[in-house]
Structure formats: structure tokens, C-alpha cells
Design a protein around this nucleic acid. Structure first.
Ligand code: MN
Ligand code: MN
Ligand code: MN
Ligand code: MN
Lengths: 218, 218
DNA sequence: TAATATATTTAGACGAATCTAATAATTATT
DNA sequence: AATAATTATTAGATTCGTCTAAATATATTA
């Protein structure tokens, strides 16, 4: 079954919201797809008709199994394209999101299969997020953010939650990227800030807000 | 200025029709974009408002300079993507058109710049059609079809006009592709058919219809 | 629990792109 | 030049995705 670009964007956003906020509201979804709540309601009815979501008016909604599969398929495409853009075309990891947002809607199955192969079947995108395989299976990595990870242990940055350009700017300033190795020296209770040590760099302190968005393999 | 996918498809089709049929009619255009003449009329008005075509009701229309630039930009994207699909992903030349038809609408300038570079700035797509450079400049090759090319001279197939799957099937059967070397032995006046000789293959006869669609460097 | 605040849905409209059927203009043919 | 055939345009709908404003349901809190 084929879906419109709008439908795909809604589905994908519901998936993401479900992961982080587990209760998905019309208002949250509206913000995610950059539209108004009224438009969301309209779309929810369509998605329900197509059996992509479970939805009763005035109640929060969830993806059906079918909806979940569709979401994973779009996310797979999005992340494979991001990987392509960074690894083959030399884009920086903070430049690829908007382009992948378009590319993810190209419909050819065969294209994605071949792209996946061309890229040597990567498991993680440039932001450290897992790329679902063609069956929607995701390679799960146990990870903890800097507010939860253990002290004095070698950590490897594995993904960044908030991928806004503001966040990515700050990361660049700290010389932090996917794969960066660091140790946590100390956590400060007063403001939740965290002192970290990266290889040859002087110690640095990151805010709690930032720490919560930086995930590491443990 | 950004254009919708529909607008881009119309513009591109007008460009192509202008090249081959030089008088572009609403009916022809309707067939090319797979729609009805009434819809074409509606779109023509929009394109005129955006100064992409010269159009007076009931008269035939042409692209403006601006329209021409837009067309060349889309064609550039289409052909670069086709080149990518064949050279990097291993698609056959008869499998890429439909996919490029979608990819050509991805909007990022930077993406195309980098793709072009990644592909080593190719001048011709897998069907032998020239790829406009970023300024819309096209590398022109003098070529003649098999109904017009000289006899007994070494010819190199440089492009195929009709790129329907039927045509491409037939070409495969004859072992003819871009770059194939051949000589014309004889042309038959009765039906316009042409006897050709390809390197190690036995002589073969192609129909006039086919001959007119196979272009060679001379 | 009743009042208030917040979130969601409906009603009604709009722009884009399409369609069919009817009409009008152009072109070709007697 | 008049008629017939062809082609193009308009009129009126439809579908999709969106909007604002009004109405309604749910959640909060006094
Ligand atoms: Mn998208
Ligand atoms: Mn990503
Ligand atoms: Mn297209
Ligand atoms: Mn081509």
C-alpha cells in the first residue's frame, strides 16, 4: 500500500513521539509535523481508516502493528539516506536531516535495497541512531546519557537525542561527536552539570540539559 | 523560487516537446504528463502567472527564458540521478527512469552539487542524453540516426530516443547499447530497414522505426 | 464537586491538482 | 466561404491537506 508524503510524515512522527513521550497527544503531534491540531484530527481519521493507528475521538492514540511497520520503513529510508549523504557526499552530520526528510519519501523498494548494499548495510546513522533492517528489526545498543552513566569509566558517545542545529553547534564547540571517548569526573548536584574529560582536551563542564542528550555505550 | 512537483513535471515536458515537436499543443502535453487537456489549460495559466511560459488562450505556447532555465535544472537532476543509479547502485539503464522521475524533485541545490562531484561531473546519462551543467549548459554531440548515418563507416551508438521498455527490450535482444560499435552495410528502400554489423555478431536487420531511434556519433 | 483551564473536535473555507461534460475557437475539407 | 472535424477552454465537482473560529470534551484545581 502506498501512502502520501503527509501521511508518512505523520506516521513517522507518531512513532518517534511514542518512543519518547509514550502518550501521544494531538497538540504534540501538531508541533512535530508543523501544523495545527485541527489538521491533526483530520489526518487521524484518515490514518484510522487505513488501519495505521488505534484512535477513538478525545483519547490518545497509538500506532497499530501495521502503522509501526510503515514507520520503521520510513525511518529506515531516512537514516540510510543520511548515512549516504555523510559517508559518500561528504555532508556534515548537522546538514543532512532536512534533505533526508525529502528523500525518505522516494518510493522504490529496489532503490533502498541497493542503497543499503552500496553503503555496506550500516546499522547506525550519522547521529548514532539505529537503522532498521529491511524487516524493521533494529539493532539495540544499551546506552546511558551523561546524567546516568557511571563515573570514571571509559564512555563512547553513541547517539545524540536533540539534533537541533543549536545542539549540534554546541557539540562541535566541545569537540564531541559520535564515537568520541570520554570519562565523567564528577557530577554536581547543585545544577546537574557534569565534568567530563576527553582524550587530549582539558576537562570541561557540560550542563545537565546537554548531559541528558548525550548518550554513550557503557 | 520553488515549484511544485506537478509544475516541474509540466515544465520539463514542455521543454522536451519543444525539442522534438517544436509546436507544443495542450493535447500533446496532456499525454506527456499523463493527464487531460482541461487540466493542462488550468496549469498553463498558473505557469504563465509565474512567467515560465508565453501563453495566449487558443494559441500554442513556449517556455520563457526563465522556464527554460527551470527545465534544464530539473533535467540536470534527473540525469545525474540516473547516472548515479546505474554507475553506483548497479541498476540497468532501463530500470532507472521512473525512480529518477521522483528524485528529480528533491530540492537541495547543495545535494546536486555534491552528487555531481561524487559522480565526477558526468556529461551524459545512461541513455546517452547530455547532462546540463550547473549553468544549464549542455554538451552537444553531433549525431545521426541509423536512417541518416553514412554507410560502411564505424559508428558508435551515442543515444536512444525512444526509451520505452519495449524499445529497450529490443535493443537488448540486438545487443545494442550506448557505446556499441557498428557499421551500416546497406539500407533497403522498400521498408527503410537497415542492415548492420556489430563487432563479433552476425549481421542483423533493424526496422526503419528502430533505426530512427538509434543515434550515433559520426 | 463545581468552576475553570486546557485539549480536541467540528464547521466551514481555501488552494492545488485533478476530473467530466459542455461550449467555444481554430483548422481542415468540401 | 460554409461546413465539418479537431482542439482548447470553461463550468462545475472532487480529493487532499491545510487553516481559523466555534463548540465540546477532558483534566485540573479550588
Ligand atoms: Mn519527510
Ligand atoms: Mn538521523
Ligand atoms: Mn518527475
Ligand atoms: Mn535518461
Amino acid at each position: 500500500m502506498k501512502f502520501s508524503e503527509a501521511e508518512e510524515n505523520y506516521i513517522k512522527s507518531i512513532y518517534h513521539l511514542q518512543l519518547s513521550n509514550n502518550k501521544v497527544s494531538a497538540t504534540l503531534l501538531a508541533a512535530a509535523v508543523n501544523t495545527k491540531a485541527a489538521s491533526v484530527t483530520d489526518m487521524l481519521k484518515k490514518l484510522q481508516l487505513k488501519k495505521l493507528i488505534n484512535y477513538k475521538p478525545y483519547q490518545s492514540f497509538t500506532l497499530t502493528d501495521k502503522g509501526n511497520k510503515v514507520a520503521l520503513d520510513i525511518i529506515r529510508k531516512h537514516r540510510l539516506w543520511e548515512f549516504f549523504l555523510v559517508s559518500k557526499l561528504g555532508f556534515k552530520w548537522d546538514e543532512v536531516h532536512a534533505i533526508a526528510e525529502e528523500l525518505e519519501h522516494i518510493s522504490s523498494e529496489e532503490l533502498i535495497l541497493r542503497l543499503d548494499n552500496f553503503l555496506d548495510n550500516p546499522s547506525f546513522d550519522p547521529h548514532g541512531d539505529p537503522i532498521p533492517d529491511r524487516n524493521g528489526k533494529i539493532k539495540f545498543i544499551p546506552q546511558k546519557n551523561l546524567s546516568a552513566a557511571p563515573l570514571k569509566k571509559e564512555l563512547i558517545v553513541s547517539s545524540i537525542k536533540d539534533q537541533s542545529s543549536e545542539m549540534l553547534e554546541l557539540l562541535k564547540h566541545y569537540h564531541i561527536g559520535i564515537g568520541t571517548k570520554m570519562k565523567i569526573n564528577k557530577r554536581f548536584d547543585f545544577d546537574g552539570s557534569v565534568e567530563i574529560k576527553i582524550d587530549k582536551l582539558p576537562v570541561a563542564i557540560v550542563s545537565e540539559q546537554m548531559a541528558k542528550n548525550i548518550f554513550c555505550k557503557i
